[in-house]
Amino acid sequence: MGELLKVENLNVYYGSIHAIKDISFHVNEGEIVTMIGANGAGKTTTMHAISGLKKIRSGNIHYEDKLISKMDAYKIVSLGLAQCPEGRRVFSGLTVQENLELGAYARKDGREAIQDDFDMVFDLLPRLKERRNQMAGTLSGGEQQMLAIGRALMSKPKMLLLDEPSMGLSPLLVKEVFKTIVNVNKAGVTVLLVEQNAKMALNIADRGYVIETGNITMEGKASDLASDPKVRQAYLGGVKKKGLACLPLFMYDNPRLDEYRYRNRDSRRFT
C-alpha cells in the first residue's frame, strides 16, 4: 500500500491569478481519497494539473514513482491514470459505443482485453448497454455521467480522478453514481474524488482533504473530517441554505437546468 500519487508543493497560475498555492497531498494505492471544497476553490485546476491539461508553475507530481508533471496529457493516460472531467465532456456526436472505444484509444493490450473491459463496463453500468448505439449527446445527464465514468474505465486505469461526478444529478442518481464509484474501487482502482457534495464524498472515502481558495486547510480520515465541527459548518449544511432541494424531483434531470445549477453550485450542498 505505497503512495500511488504524490503531489508536492504544487503551484498553478492563470496569468497572474495564483489558483493553487503550494499544496501537497498524496493518494495511497487502493484508497478512495476525496478533495472537498466550494466552487472556485481550485479543485478542477488541481485535477487538470495532475492529468497534464494545465501546465503547472512549480512543484512535483509523481505517479508510481514517475515524475509526470512535465509529461504531455495524452501520454499520462497510458500510464494508467485516467480522468473523468468536470461536466462529463462526452463526445456528443459519437455513439455510446464509440465514446467507450475512444476511452480505450491508447491501449495496446489487444482486442480481447478491450472486449473484456467492454463487458465489465456494461456489467457495471447496464444502462449504457441498452443505449450503446445512441448518440452520446442525446443521453440524459445521469447517463452521460455514467458514460464519462465508463469511458474513463475503458483505459484500464490503475487510478481514476473524478471531478464532481454528482454535479447536476438528482439525489437518486447521485446515489447510483457513488455506488458505482465504490464498486470501481472494489475492483482495484484507486480513486481521487473531487466533490462539493461533501456528505456523500466523505461517506465513501477513506481519507479527505479540504481545499479553500487554493490552499489545503484540513486533512485527515474521512470519518474524522465528517464529524469535524468546522467541516460540518462549512460543507455539511450546518448552516441551512436555500437550495434546489425544494424543486420537484422530475426537474432534476432536466439538462436545461444544468447551467443554472452549475452557476449556483454553492447552494446545492446537501442538507
Binding site: 492529468s51 497534464g52 491539461l53 504531455d72 496529457a73 495524452y74 501520454k75 493516460v77 497510458s78 485516467a82 480522468q83 472531467p85 465532456r89 462526452v90 463526445f91 456528443s92 456526436g93 459519437l94 475512444l102 476511452g103 484509444y105 491508447a106 491501449r107 469511458r151 474513463a152 483505459s155
Partner: peptide, 17 residues
C-alpha cells in the same frame, strides 16, 4: 471527431492532438 469536439477531453483519452 473527438479532437473537433473537445480537445481537452480528447487528450484525456490518450489522443495525441
Amino acid at each position: 471527431q473527438a479532437v473537433s469536439e473537445d480537445r481537452g477531453a480528447a487528450q484525456l483519452m490518450g489522443i495525441n492532438v
